[in-house]
Each structure stands twice: as C-alpha cells, then as structure tokens.
Design a protein around this nucleic acid. Structure first.
Lengths: 340, 340
DNA sequence: GTGAAAGCGCTAACAT
DNA sequence: ATGTTAGCGCTTTCAC
C-alpha cells in the first residue's frame, strides 16, 4: 500500500488515472451534461478502481448547494420523535435532500446552538419541533434564506412554514369527551417539565374545557424524568390513595397512562367503570396491553410527511405546498373510557 | 430589509463592518491565536449585529477538518438504537465532534450508500452498527483514513475498532440458564429478517447450547415487520395452540416477549411455573408490566459511550483507548423464569 | 463532447 | 497582535 500520502483521492487522481480532464470526470460523476459513452465508461472504471469518494465539502462550496435538511427535535427517548424522523426521512427519499438530526434536550438555549450549528452548514432547509425559541434562534431562522418548517404544534406564531396540531384543542377535545362520558372527578398526571410546551398547552386546553363545565381538577400529580410504565403505576397509586373519589385520570402521555392502567387492573379497580383513563399520542406499540388505552393521535406521521414535502418543494422549487397545515388530532376511543 | 442580495453574510462583511482584517475576524470567531480584547469586542459586536453565521463548508475545506462523526444504524423504530445514539451524543458532548445519523433499514446495499454519503463529507470518524457489510462498504471504511468503530456485535472481523457483545454467547448463556432452570420443551419466536444478523447469532448460540444438551426446539415461530405487544401475543397463542407441550418460549426481543407474557397471564397460564419466557435487550421502559420479563442486557449504553470515546480519542489524538471491547451481556433475572 | 480558467469562503503559514 | 498570500477540491462559465 505505498499509496500517495494524501489522505484522500481527488478528482485529479481520477482524471490522471483515466486520461480525461477533471471537468469531464466531474460531469460523469454527477451525470451532468453530455459525455460520450466511451469516456463515461473510462471514468467510472477508474473511479471505481481507485475507490474514489467525491468530496462534498468542496462540491458544496463550489456549487453553493448543500442537499441537507436540518431537523431539530427535543429528544430521541420519546416514541414521538423517532416516528417523525422516520417519516421525514421517507418523505425526502425521492429527493436529493438528506435529513440531518440534532436534539435540544427540551432546552431552548441548546436548541439555539443546534440551530446555529446546522445553519453553519448552509442546509437547504430546516425543520424544527415546536414554536417556542430564543429570540436569537428565531432571528437566525428568519434570516437564513432557506425554508424553515416548525412542526408538531400550531398554537403560536411560526417564523415561516408550520405543520402540526393544536395541542390546546387536543386537550379541550379530550376533556369534553371525558365529560360527555359522565366523568366528573378528574385528576391529572403529567410531567413537571415547563419546557414541554405542548404538554402544557394540552393541559391548558383541558382545564379550560373543565372550567367551562364548572369543574376543576381534583388533583394534579407531577413527575420528572422519562416516562415509563413504572412511573405511571406509582403515580396512579398515589393519586388514588390521596384522592379516592377521583373517577378519571388524564395522563400527559400514553406511557404513564398505560402504567396507570396496569396498576388499576392489578388493584382490581373497574376500568373504565369506576375509573377512566386517557393518554396522548396514540402509540401503537402499546396495542396488545390488557386494555386499549383511550388516547389521541398526534398525527406525527402526517406531520413528518408534510414537513418533508414543504421543504422539498421550496428547496427544489417544485410544486407549491400550502405553508400552514393544521391536522385534526383524532380521538382513539380505547377501552379505558366508558361509552355511554 | 433592503439588504444585499447575496444569500449569506461572509467573513468579509464582518471584516468591513468592524474595520478588522478577515484573518483576525476569523481568529476571533474561532478563539484562536492572540487577539486584543478591544479588537475581539469590536469583531464580536459586528458579527452579532449583522447576524453572521460562519460557513462551515468553507472552513472545513480550508482547514481539512470536519468535526462530524457519521453514525450508521439499521433503524430508529427499535428501542435499541435511539438509546445507543443518545449515549454516543452524550459521549461526544465534551468534544468538538458532532454525531450525524443515518439509517440503513437493515439493508446492506442501503448501508453502503449511506456510508458513501457520510464519507463524502469527510467526517472525523465513523460508527457503524454491525459487522456485516458489502465488500464495497468494507473497502471504503478501510481506506477512509479516519477511525471506524463497528458496534453492537463482536462475532466477526471488524474493519478497524470494535465494541459490542457476542450475541452468539448471549444466546448460549440464555439457553444454559433456561436449561438449568429445568425447562426442556423450548420454542422460539423471532423475526424472519435474515438481515437481523444479531438476532440470528443469538438464535444460533441458543440452538448450539440446546444441542449440547441433546435438545432441539419444539418449534420456531417467525414474524415479519415491527415488534410490538400484539405480535407477541398472537404468536404465543399460535405456539401454544400448535405445541401445547412447550414449557418455554425464547423470544428474539423484549417487545414480543412482553406480548407473549401478557397473553399467557390473560389465558391463565402459570408463568413461570407452567411456561417460562425470556426476551432480549433489557428494555427498562417495560418495567411496570405485570411481570418483569427475564431478558439480557445488550449493554447498549456502555457500547455507545465506548464507541464515542474511541472515535474521540483517535480523531483528536488524545488518550489511547483499547480498540476492541467486548462487554459481557448481563442476565436480567426477571419473573418469567423459575428460579430453582 | 471536451477542456481551461476563475473562484466559492474560509484557514494555514508566513510575514510584519 | 495583526495582515498578506496561497490554496483547500470542487463547479461554473465560457471557449473550443
């Protein structure tokens, strides 16, 4: 392996190996312009033989085109976001665009840094979860010159395009459904994370609908950290111990909702007769639990797909997608809400 | 906003706005070399005022340094990988390196393309799940000139560094544990995906240990697609209908293991007395199910952290990490294996 | 159909 | 402590 000492092959190496000018080699490798079949074959053969991998850094600088789409989400350890990412990737598959992910850990300062990092690569577009950002982040997004889509949430003022659901409305609708089913003594179990703006909006909408019916939460139980079955169990137990009159627990997400359900079934509590339960997100992985949890679909697949379409359309100048899309969260009428 | 028509600000703009040479502006923005406090302040002020975002494409080309680490995994819709990603990110946090993710959908051809794409950005390192790759992919990784860490699995020949567990051994150990507990009529439930090499290796190790005890599977039930509770339930039901004598079901992952458990409990089957169950991965989100599933920890947090350390050490030329690490998968002795 | 020249926005290396 | 020069590896543009 007495190769040259330079760490990477360049177009020039392929040019020399094939006896074709750099320019034509470049054309062949990008499938651009007319190149005779013979030349093309010579070039491809040389490139393959050498194991040439084009340098996109140089290409991007020269062409001022970077086929990357930055995607900024709060976290990966939450069913919701991998789903959205998967859908965004799928939506970008038929385009030259490639998603690049970054996470903010539900921290707007970190989010600002991540957005800055992403923009410094001059991507063709940006997809960011949520409508809450630092002023600096908002300014960057406004001035970056590429399409920006804020996703998941529509309750607020987007910088540019926006695709999501109204979490306030999701909370309100769920409350009305629960009230219509006859439940009256309602408790809440949710995260304490003030930075989970969407959960907070759902709660707000929920409380508003309760207020309209002249009702207030019997109690609210908060938790920190990740969401799992165990936490849901423990919290449900605590709620029922402290407020045994409660006849419904509204949970900020499906994991703790499912945990609560497991606790209740084990404790011999009649669900949904004596106690109703609801979560949020419509996690289908949970199908197969003893009872199907009543929940609300966050439309994350649709949101990811739509965001990908909008970015692709704007970045590639094709089609013209609507720039504001609000999906209607669909109630998933499981078996933890009595149907009356 | 009658700004200039050029889409992005350059160093030159900041230079002109601050009356400092481009070079010094560059130094300030990178915290390199000595710059007087006064000049530094002037530059920073101008940069902030203009909203300048450096162009990393140009910087990378000029410096021949790209602080990106490519991470290639099969899928995001599988608990395992988000976990590993999170740990890799965390491990890279204190370094200038940034992870960039790509998924192969368990397809080696796609994996090859993703690796090619990643390498074309000239990253500082590469982390790839698994030891199975196309020849072309292997060649690229061997010649790319940056550290490559293959993770998750150690049963095979790595191109460069390697961190993982032996899935063959994991399967063998689990089989021995099960046999030691007195189970003899064993069935398998797992994916048909031939591309899930690690699951296949576990199965292989498991069968080998069975063979050593003169035992063969009573039956094997395969499924396609994602893993969820429902699938585990349905398959367990099918297994027990067709082979009622079975006293243990070994499941290729925790999700279907948990589904099987839920089915058995509901069907009034004594677990683990009449029937034992085991999965793989040690998914802690599942804690809180009616029974704790016996499983095996895949050490994914340790693997992610170690891979990050190796890449960082090699890319930044600090420390010297071992280049081959095999973790020992730890048995999680749940409540679905009788302890005798 | 092919090639030569210029330059993308930065940074390394060398002045001063 | 600050400035000048050259050039990273490609693509654009224009000439042939």
């Amino acid at each position: 392996m007495a190769e040259d000492d330079k760490s990477h092959l360049t177009l020039r190496d392929v040019s020399e190996a094939s006896g074709v000018s750099e320019m034509t080699v470049s054309r062949v490798l990008r499938n651009r312009g007319d190149v005779s079949a013979k030349t093309r074959a010579r070039v491809l053969e040389a490139a393959r033989r050498l194991g040439y991998v084009p340098n996109k850094i140089a290409g991007a600088l020269a062409s001022n085109r970077v086929n990357l789409v930055g995607v900024v989400i709060p976290s990966l350890s939450n069913f919701v976001f991998p789903d959205v990412l998967t859908e965004i990737s799928r939506g970008l598959e038929e385009t030259p665009l490639q998603p690049v992910f970054g996470t903010s850990h539900y921290d707007l300062e970190i989010e600002e840094k991540v957005i800055y990092e992403m923009l410094s690569w001059r991507p063709s577009g940006l997809i960011v979860a949520g409508l809450e950002h630092t002023d600096a982040a908002r300014a960057m997004m406004r001035n970056c010159g590429v399409p920006v889509v804020e996703i998941m949430d529509v309750d607020g003022s987007p910088v540019d395009a926006n695709v999501g659901i109204s979490h306030r409305r999701a909370g309100r609708d769920m409350a009305r459904t629960i009230l219509a089913a006859g439940y009256r003594r309602i408790a809440y179990m949710g995260t304490v994370k003030a930075e989970d703006y969407r959960a907070a909006k759902r709660l707000e909408g929920f409380e508003q609908a309760l207020a309209e019916a002249g009702i207030r939460f019997e109690m609210r139980e908060h938790y920190a950290g990740g969401s799992d079955f165990r936490k849901g169990r423990e919290m449900a137990e605590a709620v029922l111990a402290r407020a045994p009159e409660v006849d419904f627990i509204y949970c900020s997400n499906d994991m703790i909702g499912a945990g609560a359900m497991l606790h209740c079934l084990e404790a011999g509590i009649d669900v949904p007769g004596r106690l109703g339960l609801a979560g949020f997100n419509g996690i289908d992985l949970l199908e197969g639990l003893p009872r199907r949890l009543t929940s609300m679909d966050a439309c994350r697949a649709e949101i990811g797909a739509a965001a990908a379409r909008i970015v692709a359309a704007r970045a590639l100048g094709e089609g013209d997608e609507p720039q504001r899309i609000e999906f209607a969260p669909r109630l998933i009428h499981g078996e933890t809400l009595r149907s009356r």
